[in-house]
Nucleic acid binder design. Structure first.
Lengths: 317, 317
DNA sequence: CTGAAAGCGCTTACAG
DNA sequence: CTGAAAGCGCTTACAG
């Protein structure tokens, strides 16, 4: 029973008899042997996937993780997460550190990087992005919900509910492709409904104070909207809070729609209409794709899931 | 300029002249050299800390991460996160995989493991726990808020606000030391107020349906409480939701207190009184302690921060 | 089918 | 102060 034999059993490689395999397995169990990922990484794989998320606050990312974990079930792979907004290190920094740590593949969520820098990463490691639209990318796979359609659904729903002065509270900061897609969907929806003249896009960072400021500005301004389509559920909940404080009634005075359909939407005190982008499915699919790439696939894949509007009281006028 | 020299510069080790150091640095920059963590891990450190959290849904963990990232600023260390509740692998599984991946130290959040199994981990790697009370542990450090006092503060506050039939909605599942501490604090508070006869502890898992069921049972039962102290803010928000659906007014008919003082507490539609356990500080301190241990400290440290009650409308009767 | 040997990119004594 | 050499625990040709 040689070192080589153990290695082969470990990787389910061919060239070991059933007898030897059983013997090795028994010894591994008896000794509680665990292979060191670092040593394996020196020559082969580490069986570790790197997942980079922009922040931990949005419960939507927990949905994605559920899908990732489901896909990893019964595989040898483990996932390690890193946060791209950590004060000191930027997105590329976190990704580089994943590469230094020999992750076999990388899943990047909500990236704001350019095609070029994503290609640079993809040269080194199999890469799949979630929440980054680039249908003509060739070196990495993308997994998305159709953000433009999501925004369109939101506007159509609000129009059908009788709202007409519909604003969008978008995200301020690094421009991203999903931002562009959703704003485009909003514009198209407004124009389609003959409301092109009242298109009104405000924006705020994710910082609480900022969102409150932007919400107050919208709700106290001269052309006060009667409905607001918000970037995420969390932002929508803040808008509900501000509206409540200003003495405005939701949905009577102002209708609110969020994005992601997180668990908070269901609470009676929120009852928030939202766009569901099937986070769990996105995570599952991204994980499958990255493992396929690790196993040799080179043809690009772009996976898009249709969004779904879940109507609740916040728009039931 | 030898391989050894590069290694020394990398680790800021002694025994290199300023001239050589500068030369090495220049070359490193020019070539864009990045050391491979796996290779470093074979002989020395990986400069990676492993952080294990029970789930991604509780926004409180994001506060902890903020502290961790602050502590890591200007150090060479990176943090990798793993989720202990991932369907397939259990808490020990995730920790083992962190050890296989040569993490230099491990921070374990909300562990439900026994002293023995934590000691087993601590034998292999520097270990610090957050949210696990074991003041006489000797092989690993602990970082906590004083959960017993937190619960006590909650009960005292509710009593002062005029509530008397105060129930606790606790967590069902693996018993943990923080669970024991909080329940103890609740009991002590009740007895202290002369309400020992109406002690009432219900419990539910974190699953939404479960919490709703438990909340309904409490609020529709024969000895309906006039106030409920909840395990986390999220659970408290669910209780507010159920109460609202049952036509009960918060805080008039029932007062609610949460735990963690997460951002959601501030929303006008929630305005939830909660116990702040300074998550950011806990994360910061745990990170410092684990790095100290990596650098050789062996004397145990147990850090405890006092909790703070933040009163809001949900208890202002 | 089986195992001895080289090598992955570092760190660590050790000799110069 | 500097660098040649051994060795960390694996995987991968390669010879037996």
């Amino acid at each position: 029973m040689s070192v080589a034999a153990v290695s082969k059993v470990l990787r389910d490689a061919y060239g070991v008899s059933d007898a030897l395999r059983a013997k090795v397995r028994a010894s591994m169990d008896k000794l509680g042997y665990r292979p060191l990922a670092s040593a394996r990484g020196m020559r082969g794989q580490t069986y570790t996937l790197g997942l980079v998320l922009p922040d931990l606050r949005n419960p939507f990312f927990a949905d994605i993780m559920t899908g990732v974990n489901n896909a990893l079930e019964r595989t040898q792979y483990q996932v390690m997460m890193g946060i791209s907004s950590s004060s000191s290190k930027l997105e590329t920094g976190v990704v580089e550190s994943m590469i230094d740590r020999q992750m076999d593949g990388i899943i990047l969520i909500g990236s704001t990087e350019s095609r070029e820098s994503l290609n640079t990463i993809a040269e080194k490691k199999p890469l799949v992005t979630i929440g980054h639209h680039d249908p003509s990318a060739e070196d990495f796979d993308t997994v998305n919900n159709n953000d433009q359609q999501g925004a369109l659904l939101a506007v159509r729903h609000m129009v059908a509910a009788g709202y007409s002065k519909i604003a969008m509270l978008s995200l301020q900061g690094e421009p991203s492709s999903i931002l562009a897609e959703r704003e485009m969907g909003y514009r198209r929806g407004m124009i389609e409904a003959g409301l092109g003249g009242t298109i009104n896009i405000a924006s705020a960072t994710q910082v609480m104070r900022d969102v409150q400021f932007a919400a107050r500005r919208l709700l106290q301004g001269p052309r006060r909207p009667d409905a607001i389509f918000c970037w995420t559920d969390f932002i929508a909940l803040e808008v509900i809070s501000v509206a409540t404080e200003l003495g405005l009634r939701v949905p009577e005075d102002v209708g609110i729609v969020g994005y992601d359909n997180t668990m908070y939407c269901d609470f009676a005190q929120n009852s928030l209409t939202s766009i569901d982008q099937s986070g769990e499915l996105l995570g599952l699919q991204a994980t499958r794709l990255v493992i396929e790439r690790i196993n040799g696939r080179t043809a690009v894949e772009h996976f898009v899931v249709p969004p779904r509007l879940v109507a609740r009281r916040s728009t039931s006028r």
